[in-house]
Design a protein around this nucleic acid. Sequence first.
DNA 1: TCAAGTTGTCTAGTATCATAGACAACTTGA
DNA 2: TCAAGTTGTCTATGATACTAGACAACTTGA
Lengths: 242, 242
Amino acid sequence: MTLQETSSGVALWRQVADGIERGIADGRFAAGEKLPGEMEIAETYRVNRHTVRRALATLAERGLVRAERGSGTYVEAAKLAYPLRSRTRFSEIVGAGGHEPRGQLIDASDDVATRELARELGLKTGAPLIRIESVRLADRTPICVSTTWLSTTRFPDAGRVFATTRSMTKLLVHYGIRDYRRGTTKITAAIADAADAARLDLALGRPVLVVDSTDVDTDGTPLVTKRSRFAAERIEFVVESG
Amino acid sequence: MTLQETSSGVALWRQVADGIERGIADGRFAAGEKLPGEMEIAETYRVNRHTVRRALATLAERGLVRAERGSGTYVEAAKLAYPLRSRTRFSEIVGAGGHEPRGQLIDASDDVATRELARELGLKTGAPLIRIESVRLADRTPICVSTTWLSTTRFPDAGRVFATTRSMTKLLVHYGIRDYRRGTTKITAAIADAADAARLDLALGRPVLVVDSTDVDTDGTPLVTKRSRFAAERIEFVVESG
DNA sequence: TCAAGTTGTCTAGTATCATAGACAACTTGA
DNA sequence: TCAAGTTGTCTATGATACTAGACAACTTGA
């Protein structure tokens, strides 16, 4: 276990805290168990004991661990049960993206097409769009936040329609579109920004899976494009092939 | 665009650097394009110009941007597109993008099957395996590190064969397997550990795409299973559908 | 009871982070 | 040619991060 020696822009105490949190998340430190002593952790990460204490303090503040004077520091929280593991298919998560009635509208606002968005939607750069920010949950655990763009010309008032229907499928039906399919899907990963971290209830610096996708109608005409950010520690995509 | 105000353990310059990098990754700043001036970026993120310069310096060091005195700072790199199909080969993808693919053996050693590995490969827990650690590059830039497991019984001496052939496809041909296809693929994301970060020439704390996959022969019999870690900032998976 | 091991708290010094301002060196377009 | 706008470099200051050492307060088990 070696940390960054050159300046990485991530504080040492944060790296230690993340390391311990990962240990809790993947079961190396089980719930209720005693963590190694502060001195031992300090030696493991080759940092000062005060640095370890700072790391443990942030974890304690978030309720992950509990320190007992004279005794030790104990793991408080159990890993959340994530039902979206083995049974879930990529097509159901991403293909159904935003179509589940579980979604929650955060914000809808006007936007204009960047060159990228215009190309995805088959519009001209600067074309008026409606941008919808939404979050989806499973068992009250936030799974992903999405930003969806639709053409204002094609779907006037889409923000309000989405707010009432809370479903992208129903929204499209409202505009006379009964069937559509996935056009392209691109997947990469990034670190959650402050806003996404807050909405996903994630610690800062935690990774998210970023999925860019565009849905098209049966003729292949682009309808909506969106960017979803999934909490990587809560999700696993399964690609079907063969 | 708001940054963490309370102490998050992530330096401001790093948050700015990540923000700009994300802009490059998602196309808000296209390759070759000029970034906003340092003053403008500083105002956007509400930080000092020196902080922006520090952020840009790290991006320049990694080859993502290039500063020109008196003129501006320009976007240098684009992400490599990596299509996910049932028959994709690393060499074909990289070669198709006009880059030169290279594979490099890091280590080959004996291992035994955990329950997970045994299930993937259709073996019994504890069965002898050969574990191969390798890294793949495109034009001298490391793209991914992989850990590959093969049955020792089925592929005796596989480590040495791989060392000479430097290609999984050629290794399988050596054992009389002419064709194979992708069985399952699971994708998630994580933070690079110290070893992977070093091999991928990544800063610590940077995200990787973790791909677990198993290749099967034409009968569906599992041949090899592997876990690959892709540098998320250099790659984008493209799922083809419809 | 007592020694060993634990967390809690204090002081102090050095390095890095972030801000602020000024000016030099250079490019671009009018 | 010249003004406006750009990046490059310098000095300076305060806040935060990290290390170091010491000791108090407390728990545990022999």
